[in-house]
Amino acid sequence: MAWLILVLSGSLEAVWAAALHRTTQASGRRRIAPAVVFLISVLASTGGLAVAMQSIPTGTAYAVWVGVGVVLTSAYAMIAKVEPATRGRILLLGGIVACVAGLKLVV
């Protein structure tokens, strides 16, 4: 159960990063809805990490949380055309996925 909570919390990390990206308009004004999504998802994400760390070693839990978050955030950025989807970038993100899966196997 702790692993499921950890992966969901990592997914919420991508949600809050995307919401943070959307909080400011081109005119410089702040948007309220993305700011609320940011606050709720960052609290749920770190809360889930704290719960998962009760059963999973701290270093492993943090690495998985960040790994899931960075891969999903990067995927979002590539789909939204904020970052280019180059072969090298996709290959390196695949390496992160492999390393995160490897951490699950050795714990």
Rank of each mutant, 00 (worst) to 15 (best):
Ala2Phe: 05
Leu4Ile: 14
Ile5Ala: 07
Val7Lys: 04
Ser9Pro: 09
Ser9Trp: 05
Ser11Met: 15
Ser11Glu: 05
Leu12Val: 04
Glu13Trp: 00
Glu13Tyr: 02
Glu13Asn: 11
Ala14Cys: 14
Val15Asn: 00
Trp16Ser: 01
Ala17Val: 08
Ala17Tyr: 03
Ala18Arg: 06
Ala19Gly: 05
Leu20Ile: 09
Arg22Ser: 09
Thr23Lys: 03
Thr24Lys: 12
Gly28Ala: 12
Gly28Asn: 10
Arg29Val: 10
Arg30Ala: 14
Arg30Met: 15
Arg30Asp: 08
Arg30Ile: 14
Arg31Gly: 05
Ile32Thr: 08
Ile32Pro: 02
Ala33Gly: 10
Ala33Trp: 07
Val36Arg: 01
Val36Lys: 00
Val36Trp: 02
Val37Gln: 00
Ile40Cys: 02
Ser41Pro: 02
Val42Asn: 00
Leu43Tyr: 04
Leu43Asn: 02
Ala44Lys: 02
Ser45Ala: 13
Ser45Arg: 00
Thr46Leu: 04
Gly47Arg: 01
Gly48Phe: 01
Gly48Thr: 03
Gly48Ser: 03
Leu49Lys: 01
Leu49Asn: 00
Ala50Pro: 02
Val51Asn: 04
Val51Pro: 01
Ala52Tyr: 01
Met53Arg: 09
Met53Ala: 13
Gln54Asp: 10
Gln54Leu: 12
Gln54Glu: 15
Ser55Trp: 09
Ser55Asp: 10
Ile56Gly: 03
Gly59Asp: 12
Tyr62Gln: 05
Ala63Trp: 10
Val64Asp: 04
Val64His: 03
Trp65Ser: 02
Trp65Gln: 02
Val66Trp: 07
Gly67Asp: 07
Val68Trp: 05
Val68Phe: 09
Gly69Ala: 09
Val70Gln: 10
Val70Lys: 06
Val71Ala: 10
Val71Phe: 07
Leu72Lys: 07
Leu72Ala: 14
Thr73Ser: 15
Ser74His: 10
Ala75Leu: 15
Ala77Leu: 13
Ala77His: 09
Ala77Gln: 09
Met78Trp: 10
Ile79Lys: 14
Val82Arg: 13
Val82Asp: 12
Glu83Trp: 11
Glu83Gln: 13
Thr86Asn: 08
Gly88Glu: 12
Gly88Ala: 14
Gly88Asp: 10
Gly88Arg: 13
Arg89Val: 11
Arg89Met: 11
Leu91Val: 15
Leu93Ser: 12
Gly95Pro: 11
Ala101Gln: 10
Gly102Asp: 10
Lys104Met: 10
Leu105Phe: 15
Val107Ser: 15
Val107Gln: 15
